[in-house]
Structure formats: structure tokens, C-alpha cells
Design a protein around this nucleic acid. Structure first.
Lengths: 335, 335
DNA sequence: TTGTAGGCGTTATCAA
DNA sequence: TTGATAACGCCTACAA
């Protein structure tokens, strides 16, 4: 066990007071060049490492930003975390990740955890924490919310237009001549999922097509649900020539189900996803999907947080979704 | 901004000393039921939250376990982190993730960061930190290493037999009648990648097949590299009827390249991956691959860490890889 | 069983 | 420009 070198020891060895050493470390005030140099030398000699805990306790700042995510291992959240990580890099602030696993109780505990760790700010990625709790938290420290809008905190919330993305995806299929487009919906309690159904429905109706509830299959954003939903669709008595899945992971599942049923993508069935996960460029065929600038969202959130920490306004940038055309969609054979 | 309630305030309000409150919180000593009850009541009333920083500074323990990973957003590391998270859940210890991004300098800084945060232990997931540095760290606090073996710290290291996995994957292809099996290698500096080439080669030679360097294409564990490698293989003048990719992500890329070249999997080319990522069950066709119990590895590492923290030996369990047969491999047509 | 007092390693306030 | 000195919030002998 190495001995921990304290600031006091450095001070004593350098023949100055501890305050002087502290000032040199933090650049809090002017210090004579002579003393500065010796202190810096001694610090190096002793391999001095400031104790972050003590420093935080005394200063009231931890330089930590709490990130409440749902699932650290999901490709979607992973990219977002990467964006956050990147933006914080080199700022002195660092992220502290904790996941709620789509479980309200865990999420609430996670927030308590972050507060008890005295993070300087919190970034919340979606989830189900009630608005009022987030409003409380926001009263205590800087907060940015991704993927939902909290009343009263609109300018700290970064949301994408899921409805528009779904609308565009569906319209794309309609423009390719598909008159009967199925939808595999996301986790029903999830706001994004609802918005995507809305966009899907609006596109149908704007094109003069009737919305058919039988063509909307429930799902939960995971591959298995997509597989089952597509299987049900194929086995059902409704005909359809295209599927819009509420996210890429379900599109993967659906794609396999179609394969199992002997249906080709896109020759027999066109398929569109949502998210543009890293893997979607490499599915067979590569997936047409609605691209969310996930990593950018993370970055924007972090930049907004840095602004809040400087006492400025968050001013999170508006980010757009866009449809990425690849090879899983094609003009309908017999229009 | 809400006022922070301190332990002292609770004590005063409850008419006891602060030590008594501390004892109740930590269960350090017997306290009369009467006092205990009122203190607990007051804590609830005041919504008291212990200050973790102060607690750690005083006690010398932070209850934090540092996790040095390479890439928080990779599906591979994601699953591992999930395993760690799960095992730590409810133990009072909590993970602190930080990623080195496959970059030595960042990794070294990450370790310094964790040490300066005074974590109680460190779990290192692979990476390139030199052995001697890890040995130093291990002298300061409990450490578990995943994916590599550090001399002198063997019983704190959890490694899988990559060579055996690759051997088995290759042998599987050979047993299906494939006489010419190509390999897409992983990041060359990565120990696992080397072991997998070794296993591939050994399986060939044990079967009396000659190792052909032209059939081994370099890669880096990402989809794009797999795509390029497979393209090169097809365009090359060597014939082959099967590919063993050093990981699933490259297998995905290879699968798309084959699709582009009009080659079917598995009818024309059999394909095997390594890792068994969550998505590999849903590729078309589902991918035959070597399953690494990634989440289990994370769990075992965390359990080992908990043992070290209790002062026991790490005794990390041995975990095996196994070949998962799916639909991307099939008996060779004209043996 | 309870309280007092000192300490954990820094920062911040005040004088000097 | 510097140095005492008092926080920061909690834990832990030691004493009662």
C-alpha cells in the first residue's frame, strides 16, 4: 500500500503554508514564481495526487455530471453516452453513469444516488421519472433532459420529432406504391412509441388510406417482439406489402421472421426501421430507417449542461431526424 | 435550491448527539430503541440524505468500484458492464464506469482518475495498460482483470480460452466438409485476436489441411473491416467455401459483402463468428458463432471483487466458451 | 448506551 | 503575496 501524500506534506516540505499550495493547484491567486516553482517540483517529487473527496467536500463542487440512462448495454443509449462522454472530455467535468433499467423504482433510487454523490448536474435520458420529481431536481441543480419534455423546463429538454420521422418513413413507403403498410409499435408506455404510431397514422390518412388497427402489432422495442409481431402479421388474414417498425431492433426481428416465412426483403415486403443503429448499415439488406442523431443528441445535451454549469442558459440545439434510404424498401410490384 | 440537511441538524432536532445518529445509520453500535425510533422519524421528516463525500473522507471507504472499459457503447462491453452492474446491485458497492477508447494514454489517465476518486477496487476490462502498471495498482487496492492475464496476479485474472473457441469453430467447418476455410482476423495488437488465429491454424493443421496465409485477411473487429476483408477474399484468386470471422461484428460485415457479391449464406459460403452478440440470433440467417458468456464474465468479475473487498481470495470462476450452432453454416455441397 | 473531541484532506475567509 | 484558522459533513476512538 503506497502512502498517500497530502497537501500539507507538500507544503511543509516546500516550506510554505498549505494555502499557498492550494492556490498554486487551483490558480486561485497570485503566488511568487519562486515558491510556485519549488512547490511544483516537490509535488512531482512526492508524486502528490489531490484527494478529490476532500476537495469536493471543502469546495462544494465535485466536477461530476450524473447521467441517468436506462440501459448501459443498449446500442441506442450506448451511442448517446458516447456523445456525452466526448463533449465532456477535457472540460474538467466527467460523467457518472447509472442505469434505471426501465424500472421506475430503480430510476428514482438512481437519482437519489446521484444527488447523494453531490454531482454538479444531472442529464436524464428519457425514462419514467414523474415530471414533478424532475422539477424538484431541477430546482436543486442544473439538469438537462433528453427524449421528453418536462413542463416548465422546456428549454432544458431536448426532444426529437418522432412523429415527423414516423410520418416520413410511412410516406416514403406510400410513395413507393404501398397501399397497405403495417406497423410494429414500440413499448406502449413510451412516449416516443406513441408519437411514432401517430406519425404513421397521419401519413396514411393524409394519403387517403384508411388506418387499419389489425395492421398495427404491439411490440416493446426488442428484437424478439419484432419477430413475433411480423409472424403474426404474416399469419393474419390482412395483406400488406410493407412494414414500418418503431425501431431498428424490432425491424431486425421482423426481417428474420419474414425470412423464415420465405418472404424476401424488399422484393416481397419493404421494411423500414427507426434509429439507424450502427448495425443497420450491415443487415442484409441494409435497412432503410429514420436516423436519429443519437450521438449528437448526447453531445448537445452535454454542451447544454456545460452552459448551465457556467450559469448561462442551456439553449440546447434543435436536432432533426431524417430518413436514410437503403435497400430494404423498393417500389411495389403490382401497384 | 433546497437546503442540505446535515447529520448534526438531525441530532439536534432529535435531542441526541451526532455520534448516536451516525451509529444508527451505520449500525456501528447498540442504541436504545427509543432514541433509534425518534432519530429515524426525524431523518424521514427532514428528508435527510447522508453526504457520501463526507462519509468517505472520514471513513476512508467510498463504496465505489472503478470499471475501466474500452468502449461503453460497444455491444460486447455493454453486456459485460451489465453483468457487473447486476452483481454489484444491492451490495452497497456501485460501479463507476470509465472508458479508455482503445487508447493507451486515455487508459492510463482513466486509472489515475479512478485512483484519485478513491474507489475501493478496480476492475479492468482488457486494454493495453502495461502489466507493471497493473501490478502497481494491485498493490494499492483490490483489482480484477478480465480478458488478459497479468503475471503474478493470475488468480485475479479472468480469461476465456479464445484459442479453444477458434479451434472449435474451425473444426466445425472442417467437419462439415469444408477444405478451404478463410479467416478474418481481429485487431492484431489484441491478444484475443492472436489466440483466435492460433486456434484457427491449429484446427486446420490437426485436420491435415495446410494453412494458407492468403486466406487470412486482416481486420480490426468492426463491421467495415469484415466487409472489406470478405470482399478481398471473394475477389482474390483463392477458392474457399467457408469463413471464420474473429468476431460477430466482422461476420456481419462479411455477410453483407457476400450478399453484394451474390453469394448466399450458407448455401454458397458458410460463416462463423465469435462472441454471440445479442443481435446474432436475429441476423439472416442467424449466425453460428462462438458464445462467450460475456455477461457471466462481468458477473464473475464483480463477485470476485466483492470477495477481495471482504478480504477473501478472488477465486474467479473458470468460464467456458462454446460453439452455438445456428443457420449460417451447412455441409459443403461437393465434398 | 451515550457524548465529547479530534481528525479525514482541502478550500475559503480574514488579516497581516 | 502569504499564513492562520475555520469550515465542509461525517466517523471513531476515548471517556463517561
Amino acid at each position: 500500500m503506497e502512502q498517500t501524500v497530502t497537501l500539507d506534506q507538500v507544503a511543509r516540505r516546500a516550506g510554505v503554508s498549505s494555502s499557498t499550495v492550494s492556490r498554486i493547484i487551483n490558480g486561485t491567486a497570485r503566488v511568487s514564481d519562486a515558491k510556485r516553482e519549488t512547490v511544483i517540483r516537490i509535488m512531482a517529487e512526492l508524486n502528490y495526487r489531490p484527494n478529490v473527496l476532500a476537495r469536493s467536500l471543502a469546495s462544494g463542487r465535485t466536477m461530476g455530471v450524473g447521467i441517468l440512462t436506462q440501459d448501459i448495454s443498449s446500442p441506442f443509449y450506448g451511442s448517446m453516452l458516447r456523445g456525452i462522454e466526448g463533449a465532456l472530455q477535457g472540460t474538467g467535468y466527467h460523467p457518472i453513469f447509472i442505469s434505471g433499467h426501465w424500472h421506475l423504482q430503480e430510476e428514482l433510487e438512481a437519482i437519489d444516488f446521484l444527488l447523494s454523490r453531490k454531482v454538479d448536474g444531472v442529464i436524464v435520458l428519457g425514462g419514467g421519472v414523474p415530471d414533478h420529481r424532475l422539477q424538484e431536481v431541477s430546482r436543486q441543480l442544473p439538469m438537462i433532459v433528453l427524449g421528453r419534455t418536462v413542463p416548465g423546463l422546456e428549454d432544458q429538454c431536448l426532444r426529437l420529432d418522432n412523429r415527423a420521422g414516423a410520418y416520413e418513413a410511412t410516406r416514403h413507403l406510400i410513395e413507393l406504391g404501398h397501399r397497405s403498410v403495417a406497423h410494429i409499435a414500440g413499448e406502449p408506455t413510451h412516449r416516443d412509441a406513441q408519437d411514432r404510431v401517430d406519425g404513421y397514422r397521419a401519413a396514411l390518412e393524409d394519403a387517403g388510406l384508411t388506418f387499419d388497427a389489425d395492421l398495427v402489432q404491439p411490440g416493446d422495442f426488442h428484437e424478439a417482439a419484432g419477430f413475433l409481431a411480423a409472424t403474426r402479421l404474416v399469419d393474419g388474414r390482412k395483406v400488406f406489402s410493407a412494414i414500418f417498425a418503431a425501431n431498428d431492433q424490432m425491424a431486425y426481428g421482423a426481417r428474420l421472421a419474414l425470412h423464415r416465412k420465405g418472404l424476401r426483403v424488399p422484393e416481397d415486403i419493404s421494411l423500414v426501421g427507426f434509429d439507424d443503429l450502427p448495425g443497420s448499415m450491415y443487415t442484409t439488406p441494409p435497412l432503410t430507417t429514420v436516423q436519429q442523431p443519437v450521438e449528437d443528441m448526447g453531445r448537445e445535451a452535454a454542451l447544454g449542461m456545460l452552459r448551465l454549469l457556467r450559469g448561462e442558459r442551456a439553449e440546447v440545439a434543435r436536432l432533426d431526424v431524417r430518413l436514410v434510404l437503403r435497400e430494404s424498401t423498393v417500389r411495389r410490384r403490382n401497384p
